[in-house]
Amino acid sequence: MRRVLASLLAVCVLVAVVTAAPTCPQYDGSTPVFFPDENDSSSFYECSNGRSVHMACPTGTVWNSNINTCDWPQSRK
């Protein structure tokens, strides 16, 4: 039983580490900091005073890291 619980705990920790939000700079600079949501192309993270805020793109658009904004899917190529 202990082995099963230990295995479940290890999996939970691994999932938490893999799905953790990105690390943001402590203070906002003159240029905003963005990170893509690796699990959802229509979402992204914006840093604000050391915290990452999960944001959603408008319907039908996806995050484009090349230009740091939501864009039409066909434009990302």
Rank of each mutant, 00 (worst) to 15 (best):
E38V: 09
V15I: 14
R3W: 04
P32G: 08
C47V: 01
F34Y: 15
A16R: 14
L8H: 00
V11N: 11
S41Y: 13
R51N: 12
L9I: 14
L5D: 10
A6G: 04
P32R: 07
S30L: 15
C24I: 01
D28C: 09
D37G: 04
Q26T: 10
V33K: 07
C47N: 03
L14T: 11
D40V: 02
V18E: 09
V11L: 14
E38A: 10
V17M: 08
V11Q: 06
D40C: 05
D40H: 11
Y45L: 01
D37H: 02
A10S: 11
T19M: 12
R51Q: 15
V18S: 06
S43P: 07
R51H: 11
G50P: 06
A6Q: 11
E38Y: 01
Y45T: 03
P25E: 00
F44Q: 01
G29A: 05
R2W: 09
N39M: 15
P22F: 08
P22N: 06
G50R: 06
A10D: 05
C47E: 02
C12A: 15
S48C: 03
P32I: 03
R2N: 14
C47Q: 00
V4K: 10
P25F: 02
D40I: 04
R3G: 11
P32H: 03
R51T: 09
E38N: 07
C12T: 12
V33C: 01
A16N: 11
P25K: 06
C24N: 02
